[in-house]
Design a protein around this nucleic acid. Structure first.
Lengths: 104, 104
DNA sequence: ACGACTCATAAGTCTGTGCTTATGTGTTGC
DNA sequence: GCAACACATAAGCACAGACTTATGAGTCGT
């Protein structure tokens, strides 16, 4: 999977919602599926796509597979976005505060 | 066009390439088309999509239309990405340097 | 060992979308 | 006025991708 395709991966609203849930806590595919009106294979396919893009990682535990957001998976997105820094929103100030906060 | 669909808009490689060219300089649709193996209507349709997402703006000049990247158009993307700050790449340091640089 | 369970893969269907050609709308210059 | 030009819109086609059901592969508890 090419880095450039991260946009295609994130274009699907279901996958974005999955990421959001996984960002809160690591969980199994079945746990993740709760709240989604989607079949188990569809979920599995989405997980494979997210995995392929390096956005999540898996940890096998018996017959369960625990998924979690992969730190740094958004790096290609950051890099792409950095090229448009001249057009960044003025609320970039919020970002500065954020970084200051992260230092502590 | 919903903000959430910015990923769908950016998922197309042609549209991303168009943005990249427009980031360098404002130009007309015909100028922008140079170097793209694509028909004029296709280009026009892509421009409409980018315009609808608030990523570019147009300035009519007679029979020409000049397009340019709209500052702040990436804001929804920044906001979305900010929610994953816990998973940001460690090269976030580069971003810090960037912000410091922007202050000067 | 065997049934229940978790997850992945296969195969087929259907919708969305990016492309094309054809045409419409408005502008410029002779 | 009219031909050439810049761009937008319409209509139709073709492929990509997200979904389904069916099935496979591996694991757990009894």
């Amino acid at each position: 999977m090419s880095d450039a395709d991260i946009f295609k991966v994130l274009a699907d609203p279901t996958r974005r919602a999955m990421l959001e849930r996984l960002a809160g806590a690591e969980m199994t595919a079945t746990e993740l599926r709760e709240g989604f009106a989607i079949s188990q294979p569809a979920m599995s396919q989405h997980l494979a796509v997210l995995r392929g893009a390096g956005l999540i990682s898996e940890r096998r535990d018996g017959r369960y597979v625990n998924y979690r957001v992969e730190a740094g998976g958004m790096a290609p997105l950051h890099e792409w976005l950095a090229r448009y820094r001249a057009f960044w929103p003025s609320r970039i100030d919020g970002l500065k505060d954020l970084l200051k906060e992260m230092d502590q």
